[in-house]
Simulated assay, not measured.
Amino acid sequence: MAMSENRARLGGPIPKFKDYHIWKALYCLSKSAPIGRKKLATLVGVGEGSTRTILTMLQESGAISVKKNGVTLTPEGKKIWASVAMNITTLRVDSLTIGAINCAVQVPRAANKVKFGCEERDNAIKSGAAGATTLIYSNGILMFPGNEYPLDIKSDKAVRAAFNLSNDDAIIIGTADTPEAAEEGAVSAGLELLGGLQLKQESDPMYSPLSSSNELIALAFMVHDLVGGLPVCAKSKDNLGIRIENGKVIDNAYTGAVLEEVLKIGTTIRRIATSGPYKGIRVIVTPLELNNSVIAAIGVVDIRTMAGINNPIRLHEDDDL
Rank of each mutant, 00 (worst) to 15 (best):
F17I: 11
F17Y: 12
Y20Q: 01
Y20K: 01
H21C: 08
H21T: 11
K24T: 15
K24H: 13
A25Y: 00
L26H: 04
Y27H: 11
Y27P: 02
C28W: 14
C28G: 12
L29A: 06
L29C: 03
L29H: 05
S30G: 04
K31C: 09
K31P: 05
K31I: 09
S32W: 09
S32F: 10
I35D: 06
I35E: 08
I35M: 11
I35K: 06
G36A: 06
R37P: 08
K38S: 15
K38C: 13
L40W: 06
L40S: 06
A41T: 07
A41P: 00
T42W: 09
T42N: 10
T42R: 12
L43R: 11
G45N: 03
V46N: 02
G47T: 07
G47F: 05
G47P: 01
E48Q: 12
E48D: 10
S50E: 09
S50F: 07
T51V: 11
T51C: 11
R52C: 09
R52M: 12
T53V: 14
L55W: 04
T56F: 12
T56M: 13
T56W: 13
M57A: 14
L58W: 07
L58E: 03
Q59C: 08
Q59H: 13
E60K: 10
S61I: 03
G62K: 07
A63R: 10
I64S: 04
S65N: 15
S65R: 14
V66Q: 05
K67F: 10
K67G: 10
K67D: 11
N69S: 13
V71N: 05
V71K: 07
T72R: 12
L73Q: 03
L73P: 04
L73I: 04
P75G: 07
P75K: 13
E76C: 08
K78H: 00
W81R: 00
S83N: 06
S83P: 02
S83V: 07
N87F: 10
N87D: 14
N87G: 11
I88H: 03
I88W: 03
I88T: 08
T89L: 03
T90N: 05
L91N: 01
L91G: 04
L91I: 06
V93C: 01
V93T: 00
V93N: 01
D94C: 05
D94E: 11
D94A: 08
S95E: 00
S95I: 00
L96R: 00
L96M: 02
T97N: 02
I98D: 05
A100Y: 07
A100N: 07
I101Q: 04
N102M: 06
